[in-house]
Simulated scan of single mutants.
Amino acid sequence: MRKGWMRKAFVSTALAVTLSGAGLAGASAAAPAHPSAVPVTTASAQILAVHNFGLSSAQAKNVQRWLHTYWGYNDGIDGQLGINSWKAFQRCLKTHWGYTDKIDGDPGPNTVMALQRLLRNYGYTDKIDGDPGPNTQAAFKRFADTI
């Protein structure tokens, strides 16, 4: 009985190794690319990025409604601060809070520094450093709850 079990295990393992090796070797050469596959690039991933910086969906919706009312935001009120939300926010920050970079919807360090200047009115007391850390996020939540 023990001999039969060992032989079956050996044959099964050998077969699995053979098939997986052949499958892997043949897969790259034989598998055609799917005709409807679209290559993903860093640029397309960035466009879809959402940066809520600690806001809940409800708080982000408050911000989007405010951006819609005052800063030309014309996308959906979905609670996801994406590229169009940040473009509208950058317009605000450029007008009033010292943002000098391009309006590109990327909330990088320059956007965050201008946001931190705005958030001074909402209890932010740390350095203006462009890092959306916990104190920036806490003040951003207060802003979102107040507007």
Rank of each mutant, 00 (worst) to 15 (best):
S56V: 06
T136E: 04
G76I: 13
I147G: 03
I77R: 06
W66T: 01
V112F: 01
V63R: 03
M113H: 08
S57L: 13
A16M: 15
P132I: 05
C92R: 13
R142V: 08
N84I: 07
L48R: 12
K3L: 14
H34D: 03
I128D: 04
S44G: 05
Q64F: 09
L93R: 01
Q90Y: 01
A49C: 04
Q59P: 02
C92V: 06
T111N: 03
Q80H: 08
S85E: 09
L48A: 15
D126R: 06
V112N: 02
F89E: 12
D78K: 02
N110I: 08
A9I: 07
I147C: 02
L19D: 13
T41M: 08
P107V: 02
A58H: 08
T146K: 06
A58S: 12
A22R: 07
W97S: 01
Q116F: 00
R91P: 11
N110L: 12
Y99S: 05
G130F: 02
L48P: 08
W66I: 03
I128V: 04
K61T: 11
A43W: 01
Q137R: 08
A144Q: 04
A37D: 07
R120Y: 00
G79A: 06
S57G: 10
M6R: 11
K141G: 05
T95G: 04
T41W: 09
N110R: 14
H51C: 10
G23S: 09
Q116S: 00
I147L: 06
K94N: 07
K8T: 13
K141A: 09
L115A: 00
M1S: 13
R91G: 09
Q116E: 10
V50N: 06
W66C: 02
Q90C: 04
G76V: 13
Q46T: 14
T69V: 13
L55M: 02
G72S: 13
T42V: 13
G105C: 00
G130I: 00
A27T: 09
Y73A: 04
S12K: 06
T42W: 10
G123K: 09
S12Q: 08
Q64Y: 10
N52Q: 00
Y99C: 00
S57R: 14
V11N: 11
D126G: 14
K8N: 12
T42I: 11
P39N: 07
Q137N: 01
V112M: 05
A31G: 09
V17W: 11
G82E: 02
P107M: 00
L15D: 07
G108V: 05
A144L: 03
R117V: 09
M113Q: 14
I83H: 11
V11C: 12
A37L: 15
P35D: 03
A27I: 09
R91V: 10
D75T: 10
L67N: 06
Q46Y: 10
P132W: 02
Q59K: 02
H51N: 14
P132R: 04
R7P: 08
V50F: 01
A45F: 14
L19K: 08
D106F: 15
M6P: 08
H96N: 13
A30L: 07
A114R: 01
N84K: 15
W5A: 14
R2P: 11
W71E: 12
R117N: 05
A27N: 13
I128Y: 02
K102F: 15
A60S: 07
I103N: 00
M6E: 11
